[in-house]
Design a protein around this nucleic acid. Structure first.
Lengths: 152, 152
DNA sequence: ACTAATTTTGTAACGATTACAAAGATGTTA
DNA sequence: TAACATCTTTGTAATCGTTACAAAATTAGT
């Protein structure tokens, strides 16, 4: 349920290279951020963090990099909320996502039994996205504490 | 796999009323379109069709209506592609969606066995979205025909 | 080092959505 | 039915994520 992976720049460089892309410093940084971030970031979040490291970084570059990395299959787009694409490292065991409707946090969950193997006659299924929406434990706790406060 | 429901204006009016909203002509029309459309429409599509019937219709009204109807739980937002929200009637047996990556068509599918009953300790799960992405039978056919043409 | 191809960058444009305020319609109460 | 408060609609302007484009910079291969 938690991602502890740490991808070294060396690994990331090789991944980008294998994808047929040039491993520019910006691309490595973008991929690194997506790969090692706990929460699946948006282009804007990536830009915000990386522009410290690359003062000249352009938002277009972030978008370019993300597109290129999606193109070669290194990362995946999560369509969680219209108007805000989130990105996730692609070559992982298939998993689903929980989205907290209170704090917006996205948590990796295991993929429900059997879903990955589903086929439907006539349809070619390339990928499966499962999104659980609700309230995460932290927000549930906060809520409870607020409620008990009211009852005192 | 196919929706044949036909909701009368009388039914829709009552649904809106029960939700605590005023059943204005525009709202009824919006809800009717979402309820009876085969493909889950976007705000823009709804506006395009309804502006014939309501020459004075404003796009803002479509958005307002959709928001209000979502608010009271009559319709649901599908987050299929960032930058284009689709809408679906809410009070249906839970189902999943197939999205064709070629023609963009959205097809209702049955909900995979057991997914609706999933619980996770500590999390409050309010709803579950399952999206299959791939190529629909029609587009697969077209592709095949093109390929066989090339081989002649 | 030279050349071609790729990548970055900044600016401008785009499209979906939202904010806002005025005008219009509706429901309620007397 | 008249008066009033409330809810809806409408149009315009603004916002925000994303894309288009062209010039400058970088990289890879000869």
């Amino acid at each position: 349920m938690c991602k502890e992976n740490h991808y070294s720049d060396r690994q990331l460089t090789e991944m980008i290279h294998k994808g047929g892309l040039r491993p520019s410093a910006q691309r490595i940084a973008v991929l690194s951020f997506v790969a090692n971030a706990k929460r699946h970031p948006t282009a804007d979040e990536i830009y915000g963090v990386l522009s410290d490291k690359f003062p000249s970084l352009s938002k277009t570059t972030v978008y370019n990099s993300l597109h290129a990395l999606v193109e070669v299959g290194l990362i995946r787009e999560l369509e969680i909320e219209s108007g805000n694409r989130h990105y996730d490292l692609a070559p992982q065991p298939p998993h689903s996502h929980f989205v907290c409707r209170t704090c917006g946090k996205i948590v990796d969950m295991s993929m429900p039994e059997g879903v990955s193997e589903i086929t439907t006659p006539g349809f070619q299924i390339d990928c499966i996205d499962v999104y659980f929406k609700g309230i995460c434990p932290e927000c549930l706790n906060k809520k409870q504490r607020q409620n008990s406060k009211l009852n005192n």
